[in-house]
Amino acid sequence: MQSIDTRSRRYAAGYDGVAKFLHWLVVVLIAAQFVIGWTMPDIHKGTLPEGLIAWHLGVGATLIAAVVLRIVWRLTHRPVPASVSPLLRIVSHVTHGLLYLALIVVPVLGWANASSRGWSVKFFGVLPYPSISPEGSSVGHEMGDIHGALAWVLLALIALHVAGALYHRFVLKDDTLQRMLP
């Protein structure tokens, strides 16, 4: 049996395996969503959820589940904070908070838009999520436009997050980046 001190040092050195897995799963799902979103056909009245659109819905449903799990895990398994200046700690907290917010809001807006079109959003293509806006809802349709615009905000936040990790690695030369690497 490991001592508490050994577990604490291992935990302080980085995030645990579940946190890392969920982080990188979200990275892969987001990358897939952007590729699918950029290559799928435009959605108009009467568009059917087929092909890449169906893939976008399915990956989005998986993304929602992964982000919820990630947030629950993060709230119940807090890592030891990295040793950074108070200013960098504030920037980190704000950036992570905005990232989590965007990772929730962007997919939920897409889900609302799909619901307003009468499309089923299914986890792994099997388990249907409930409709969150009435079919034919003009507000639900508008959520699709907001979903698209906020996806660009999410992309900018991701770029800021990656830039921060690279700043830690190559400028500060600390171990912040390594905390999330496998």
Rank of each mutant, 00 (worst) to 15 (best):
V94N: 05
I71G: 00
P49C: 08
G118Q: 07
L103F: 15
G144V: 10
A163G: 03
A31N: 07
G58R: 08
G37V: 06
L181H: 03
L87M: 15
G14D: 01
D145Y: 14
T6L: 14
V139H: 08
R179A: 03
Q178C: 06
W73N: 03
V35H: 02
V35M: 08
S8E: 11
A159W: 09
V91W: 13
T47E: 00
I53W: 05
P81M: 03
R7S: 12
G58W: 06
N113Y: 15
R9L: 12
T6D: 13
H141F: 14
K45C: 04
A32F: 09
V162S: 08
L172W: 12
W73I: 01
K45R: 14
T39Q: 08
A159C: 02
A82Y: 04
A151D: 04
S116V: 05
Q178H: 15
L109P: 01
V27S: 03
P49W: 12
A114W: 01
P130Y: 12
N113I: 08
I43T: 01
H96L: 02
T62I: 14
I4M: 10
L177C: 07
D16E: 06
L127M: 10
L75K: 09
V171K: 14
H56R: 06
I158C: 03
L57H: 01
G148Q: 13
A54E: 10
A114Q: 01
P41F: 12
I104T: 10
A54D: 10
L29S: 00
I36N: 05
D174T: 03
M1I: 14
W38G: 09
P182S: 14
I90R: 14
L154S: 05
S137G: 01
Y167C: 10
D16K: 12
T176Q: 13
V139I: 13
T6M: 14
S131E: 05
L127C: 02
Y167F: 15
L177R: 05
A31G: 11
T62Q: 13
S116N: 04
G17Y: 12
L88W: 15
V126Y: 11
L150G: 02
D175L: 13
S115L: 10
R74E: 05
E142F: 15
I64T: 02
V153C: 07
L127A: 10
Y100N: 01
L69G: 08
A82N: 05
P134V: 15
L157R: 08
G164P: 00
V59M: 00
V67C: 06
V94K: 05
